[in-house]
Amino acid sequence: MSGARRVVRFTFWSNFGTFLLLALEMGSFMYHLPLMVSLVTALILAGAVFFQVWYLRHHYGVTKVEEFYLAGDERDRNIAYRVHNSCLYFLTQALEGLLVAVFLLLLAGVTSAVALGTWILEIGFTILILSNCQYYYLWQKYDAA
């Protein structure tokens, strides 16, 4: 397994864990869970992000934050270009979908700021998870091709 593939796999799972913690954090506000739950989740979330950065730096030698930080050579860069292109296209479509969704929600009578914000957060969260899965799937697909 190439270094780039290992980085992609680690990033996928660590992002997935981060998203779960983020969902818990969001849920604690939406469903009025005790403040302690929110505080502990926020601390774990911050720790998880620091751990991700630390692990990438010490185990995969990622020292720079740039577009193709995981690309080991020209083939990896080629794969990264194709994956990023597809993901950007998806994210653009998703953003347009989000705007349409807000418009439809307003038409449907969801005018409360809290309700609307909750919907937007939930849709945005779904987009993040889908995008993460798309990145991992496409990288595996192009790397195997």
């Binding site: 190439s2 270094g3 780039a4 080991g72 050579d73 020209e74 083939r75 990896d76 080629n78 790397d143 091709a145």
Partner: peptide
């Protein structure tokens, strides 16, 4: 050639066309 082993394998198996430099 300063690339990964996977790249050499992909080129040998006609799965990737290298750049002119490579």
């Amino acid at each position: 050639t300063n690339v990964t082993r996977q790249t050499i394998n992909a080129i040998e198996n006609d799965k990737y066309d290298p750049s002119l430099t490579l």
